[in-house]
Simulated scan of single mutants.
Amino acid sequence: MSLEVTVLDSIESADRNQWNHVVETAPLGSLFHRYEWLEALEAGTASTPRHLVVHKKGNPVGLLPNVITDVGPVSRLDSLYPGFGGPIAITDEEAVLEALLGVVPRLCDGTVLFSRLRTYDQAAIRYHELFRAHGYDLDVKWCRIALELSQGWEAVSAAMDRTRRRGIRRGHDQAFEIVDVPISRHALARFYDAYAAVMERSGLPVLPYSFFLALEHLDDRLELFSLRVDGEARGSILCYRDDEQSTLHYAYSGVKREHFEYHAAELLHEHAIKWAIEHGYDTYDLLRTAPDFRDGLFRFKSQFGGRVVPLLSWERGVPSPALPVLNLARSLQRRYLD
Rank of each mutant, 00 (worst) to 15 (best):
L337N: 08
Q303K: 12
Y240G: 00
L147N: 14
L130S: 10
L38R: 14
D161C: 06
M199I: 05
S2H: 12
T247A: 13
V309F: 04
F176Y: 15
A189E: 15
G44H: 08
I273K: 02
D220Q: 12
L31F: 11
R330P: 06
A133R: 15
R201Q: 12
C108M: 11
I125R: 12
S150I: 00
K56R: 15
R132C: 09
W275S: 04
P87D: 10
R169C: 05
V325G: 11
V206F: 07
L52R: 10
T111V: 14
L311I: 13
A158Y: 11
I125T: 09
R50G: 01
V7F: 09
K256N: 06
G296M: 02
A26M: 08
D173P: 01
S246V: 02
V7S: 11
R16Q: 15
E261V: 13
D285V: 03
L328G: 14
A329V: 09
S150R: 12
K141I: 03
G305N: 02
L227T: 08
L332P: 00
V308I: 15
D78S: 15
Y262S: 10
E278G: 06
A146T: 14
D220M: 01
G317T: 05
L113G: 11
S13D: 10
V23Q: 08
G296C: 01
H249S: 02
F300W: 12
F84I: 02
A272K: 01
N20V: 05
G62F: 04
F298H: 13
R166T: 15
C239W: 07
L149H: 10
P291Y: 01
R334H: 14
R144P: 01
E270A: 11
S320C: 03
L38K: 11
L113D: 04
H263N: 11
Y262I: 01
G135R: 03
S13A: 12
Q333D: 13
P291C: 02
L8T: 09
A40Q: 05
E258W: 04
G135S: 09
A233Y: 01
L332A: 08
E177K: 08
G203E: 08
R288Q: 11
D180R: 06
L38T: 11
D9F: 08
E232C: 04
D109A: 01
H269W: 03
D15N: 15
V5L: 08
D292F: 05
L31I: 06
T289P: 03
L268S: 02
K256C: 10
H249G: 00
M160W: 02
E177C: 03
V103R: 15
L248P: 02
G203H: 08
R165H: 06
A329D: 13
L248H: 06
D285I: 07
R162G: 13
R164E: 11
H271M: 00
R221H: 14
L312T: 08
P310T: 04
A290P: 00
L130K: 15
L52Y: 13
D243V: 10
T48S: 02
A251L: 12
L337P: 04
L97R: 03
Y240S: 00
N20I: 03
A89K: 01
V71L: 07
Y136S: 01
L248V: 14
I178L: 00
S202K: 13
V54P: 12
D338Y: 06
D137Q: 11
L97V: 14
I68M: 03
A251H: 13
G254I: 09
L287I: 05
I178A: 01
E278R: 09
I145S: 09
D139Q: 07
I183E: 06
G317H: 02
A159D: 15
